[in-house]
Design a protein around this nucleic acid. Structure first.
Lengths: 194, 194
DNA sequence: AAATAAAATTGAATAACGTTCATTTTGTCA
DNA sequence: TGACAAAATGAACGTTATTCAATTTTATTT
């Protein structure tokens, strides 16, 4: 039991390094195997295929990301502050983990199998959390009752993803954090009760 | 001269069909060649490689999309109506061309070579157009002077892309148009002068 | 400890696909 | 018609994910 898990972790560690340097396409199973000090065939006893390995790594990281977001927000009462913290931490995490983000945003999230993956299910908890915050805000009278909160979630996540994606495609040349305040305020202005 | 262009179009037509049915990865050069009634090697006389063929198709479609957006907006004076029309047409075009959109959103836009492609340059004209509309709105006093218009563009394009991407990944099961009004109003509420 | 069974590992072979290139076919002009 | 150029061909190549029969390692039983 423990032996299998250990070996699985070894393969994943090697894969993180290889996927980190190259894209999904350019990363080779042979290199992952070499780095893990095992034969290529062994990988297929622990993972269904290359994509499964790729998504499993994404799943681990996404769980970590979501639990950290939780942790950031749990001691905040104010709805607006919750959204501000979420935006801030989103950029902060992505700035601190560019390899994970590059894979997630540019390769996993757009894969047509992504929606079927456990990684996606984990990612959806963030979406649910946002809906929860927005509903709570409506009940408190902070967010307009006639704002479609599912649309507002599209707006929030869409803006965040767009900023990050452009940042990645531009080569991570500028500081992501500069957007945090403006994004929060723009989104809040769109949904706030007058 | 005309002969070369004609053959090029034939190849692209076959490629559109094949890329439309399968993803970039799953589309085979051999099938494209078969569909175009030529040998595989011939394709490489008209396109540098598979990706070049893929991006060239994207470029044509993106030009068409951008010029149609222009056409939709040119006879509108009101800033808010311009944005409403842009949002509406964005969804409308994407609903009407799901194959193009699937390729653009899920495969081209996230390709690391995309930023270097002519397709991306064409797509950027849409971004410039939005900046122009927003600046004009600020001058007219319709949009807040202290709103960062580059951030607002992230918000607008990000929301649109997010709605469309989720729609695609969910299998295009629901009607995209239902989001148009809410998206416009949410974004406008975020940037409007009070 | 030895024998036996089960599990894990190996790496050469396979299959699939994009790309190349020497050869052949087609088109053009004198 | 013949000579030259341009276009097209498709077999061969190189690269890689994946498979699987053979082998080694680990666990279990006597």
């Amino acid at each position: 039991m423990s032996r299998k898990k250990l070996r699985k972790q070894e393969i994943m560690q090697a894969a993180i390094e290889v996927f980190g340097k190259a894209s999904y396409q350019n990363a080779n199973i042979s290199e992952i195997a070499r780095k893990a000090g095992i034969a290529e065939g062994t990988i297929y006893q622990y993972f269904k295929n290359k994509q499964d390995l790729f998504f499993t790594i994404g799943l681990e990281r996404t769980k970590d990301f979501c639990s950290q977001i939780d942790h950031q927000i749990e001691h905040t009462d104010d709805t607006e502050d919750k959204i501000r913290k979420l935006v801030w931490f989103y950029f902060y995490y992505f700035k601190s983990n560019p390899d994970y983000v590059r894979s997630l945003m540019l390769e996993m999230r757009v894969n047509s199998d992504f929606v079927k993956s456990r990684c996606y299910k984990s990612f959806k908890t963030l979406g649910k959390k946002i809906i929860h915050i927005l509903k709570e805000g409506q009940e408190k009278g902070i967010i307009r009752k006639n704002a479609d909160i599912y649309c507002a979630r599209h707006m929030l996540l869409g803006t965040l993803e767009h900023v990050v994606t452009r940042w990645l495609l531009a080569g991570e040349k500028y500081d992501l954090m500069q957007f945090a305040d403006q994004v929060s305020e723009l989104v809040l202005d769109g949904i706030r009760e007058k």
